[in-house]
Nucleic acid binder design. Structure first.
Lengths: 212, 212
DNA sequence: TTGCGTCTTCAACAGTTGTTGAATACGATG
DNA sequence: CATCGTATTCAACAACTGTTGAAGACGCAA
């Protein structure tokens, strides 16, 4: 019924389940059942449970990073030799995520939820995010420093943390905003979230990073 | 060596461990060991593991909510009959958290990290946050609508989500900003985080919620 | 066919999990 | 003292965990 290989089915099932319940909240048997596969097969392809977790996390990282980096380079090139606007930088950071969603691929949505889980986790956060995303984030921070030359570095890092937090909670798709708004806002609607997040974040950067 | 009751020691240990590793990442035996207590005692006082988890989560909720609500009421009273400023509302939401930290009580810091874990979790998020915090959040949203009369409700909810996300990631204390900034910013410094978060968030609200 | 490397299944392992019920200690009340 | 309710410990349960090694199935080359 499913055309993909068993190896990919394991990755997909693990992606969905790890995103929903976290590393410790999921058993290999649950993953195997969801993937319609024998328990031992996960071990054959990926080794230990932790290695499977990392494989899921790494699978889509490079594709995502490349799309973001490309968008940033374009924004910088358009504005050169001047600095790009903060808005252009933030757009480059966020818009590629919508494309990921617009493919209609539920896997991408699960992946973003997994990122939210890891990035917000006291245990996994610094352990796993740095390796795959710090280089990219460094480029964005450099661009922001260029766009906000009067700002202290400290202010830029804190503002970026605010951006990262807003994004992370949106990725998590907890459904809380759906309840709070009485159904007016849907936490699965990444496009609407970004449409409101971008001007919000840009205004924050401009106010905090221009006054010192 | 510890003057507190065993029941409280269990709560404290569970708070710290659940915050660090999540519900499924912690065993009752780890909690019992950390609290220097027998395994079965947790079951005697709290029943099932899930009930202990909820007890930890509820323990400090009312105190936190009351402090926030008091701050909001004061801000509203000062401005009455006009609406309070967005800044005053956001301050009322965030400043009580610093007081929690300034007591030097490590338990409060752990509790806030636990909130971050729950609020950002796809599984626990809407399940547990609503019951304890929705009433309070409703009051803050009402105040924000009053302070931003030209805004659509939709915009206010999305902006509040951004605020909530920024706050959540800061609570999580993942140490990632420490690495990114090369030690310039410390994720344990809640006061510095709030000092940058408040103007950031206020600027976001004002821009997004005044243009429609 | 035979062989061979890769993929997949099966059965089982030792260790750990949450949870329980009986037994024991404690501390106040009578 | 004895009594009683609460608090705590002890030992053990059945269920489930990640992981493993051997056995089987598959596809392809010779």
């Amino acid at each position: 019924m499913n055309a993909t290989s068993k190896r990919d089915r394991i990755l997909d099932a693990a992606e969905a389940l790890f995103a929903a319940r976290g590393f410790d909240g999921v058993t290999l048997r649950q993953i195997a059942t969801a993937a319609n596969v024998d328990v031992a097969l996960a071990n054959y392809h990926f080794g230990k449970k932790l290695a499977l977790f990392e494989a899921v996390f790494k699978r889509r990282a490079t594709e995502l990073n490349e799309a973001r980096l490309l968008a940033l380079r374009e924004a910088c090139a358009e504005a050169a030799p001047a600095a790009p606007s903060v808005e252009a930088i933030v757009e480059a950071f966020l818009r590629p995520l919508e494309m990921a969603q617009e493919t209609g691929d539920e896997g991408w949505a699960n992946y973003l939820t997994l990122i939210a889980y890891i990035n917000n986790s006291a245990y996994w956060g610094s352990r796993m995010m740095s390796e795959l995303f710090d280089e990219l984030v460094g480029e964005f921070i450099a661009a922001l420093k260029f766009a906000l030359p009067h700002s202290s570095d400290e202010a830029i890092y804190w503002c970026f943390q605010n951006l990262s937090g807003a994004l992370t909670l949106t990725f998590a798709r907890t459904g809380r905003i759906d309840k709070l708004s009485g159904g007016l806002c849907k936490s699965t609607d990444l496009r609407m979230a970004c449409d409101h997040m971008i001007p919000f974040v840009v205004a924050g950067f401009e106010r905090v990073c221009n006054s010192r």
